[in-house]
Design a protein around this nucleic acid. Sequence first.
DNA 1: CCACTAAATGAATGCCGTTCATTTACGATT
DNA 2: AATCGTAAATGAACGGCATTCATTTAGTGG
Lengths: 229, 229
Amino acid sequence: MPASTSAPADPHRHDAKPRRRVGRPAAAVLDQDGITAAALQLIGKSGYDGFTMAALARTLNVAPSALYNHVSSKRDVLVLVQDHLTSLVDVSLFASDPWDQAVRSWAWSYRDVFSKHTPLIPVIAVLPVTDAPKTLAMYEAVSAGFSRAGFPQRLIVSAIVALESFIFGSAYDVTAPADIFDSGSMADSTPNFTAAVKRQDLEGYDKPADVAFNLGLEAMIARFGTLRA
Amino acid sequence: MPASTSAPADPHRHDAKPRRRVGRPAAAVLDQDGITAAALQLIGKSGYDGFTMAALARTLNVAPSALYNHVSSKRDVLVLVQDHLTSLVDVSLFASDPWDQAVRSWAWSYRDVFSKHTPLIPVIAVLPVTDAPKTLAMYEAVSAGFSRAGFPQRLIVSAIVALESFIFGSAYDVTAPADIFDSGSMADSTPNFTAAVKRQDLEGYDKPADVAFNLGLEAMIARFGTLRA
DNA sequence: CCACTAAATGAATGCCGTTCATTTACGATT
DNA sequence: AATCGTAAATGAACGGCATTCATTTAGTGG
């Protein structure tokens, strides 16, 4: 056989693919917005299981360690994603429509956004608003709407928190399997519950989660509505 | 030098500490109850960060791989823990007291139990009741109470789910840092919200989370109460 | 022109959940 | 009583993960 095929590669020869560039690039290829967008795209394609720092770096054609020049941890990335998603929540009706309508559309849209991103909920729930400007902007729009509607100042934050807690819990509920309440072989020992599951009424909604969300949300809207001046 | 010090250890010599036993033990040292108890203890001592299969095995004086003869994954252990904790939730009032009192004590106790175990919430929320017998028992007690109170069958499950969603979300809220709503340097751009945070009324409760929980829970109890026959 | 710094690389680290071949003792079967 | 199958342990792997670090390079400000 010809020597050229068996001999070790000439170390001075250029590789077929040119060696990946090292050191400062002509222009920065990464920034927080780009990382956020790539993270969102990756999560959409691979879900939160497939969302790793390595995969994120691959999406951006970059080494994993490069990410750490722009964020300080994976949690940081999740915060960026969370804040972006919150900006998709619809608060527009608070500026124009009646209070109850505004709360309704806000709550449904909030739940819908995060039901596809439940792994972020533990992050949001304890995140200081300082670290999430768009989230803070949402709170401003909502509390302005509550004020405008004559809601007593001293209750605004508590009411929003109560609604939000319900929204987060309900977002999980959306992801539950359809047969979650199937009592199976233990049906005999749980007659009341088994009967209640069988008689559950969908009221024209697509999913049980929607019925429950409507029920709880309307309860809060009705009761909170009476607290206004 | 004497041969004894430089020569490799005699393979037949007994080690100072007797070699750890290998193979089937005289009596099984592990079972699901023991694993659950140890997991609970470990979580109490080290939190969910320190709760690893290796640490759990160490608590039980066992190799990590031994655990997999009794559970099929770490998630399995979390399910066992979850089911145990659910049995601590107080459903006793559903058998005796008025409906609204029973719901109140159930909801507060449910929230208090899981506010110390929020990492379990994503597990519970999507867990088929078949895999958690004590959880199923809780649902039976609660739905029996709703039935007894004249609640319409077709709404029982939805009402329970709505309450549960609120409870789970509120459990996270308990763990939030006290200054979570401090808008810091962005206070200027969020005048309504900043004012509302400042005027928030604790109503004699210890924590803001308690005020919000009371507000939302009483809204649901009031509204759901009107649905009874 | 030079020193500084921002921004990349890739190798290394340490932890984690999980798998697997192997070992051993109990209990049932012959 | 001897045998056999199986339950239940060990410990050595494995692959994947987030993160750190020394190093390299190219722009930038003095």
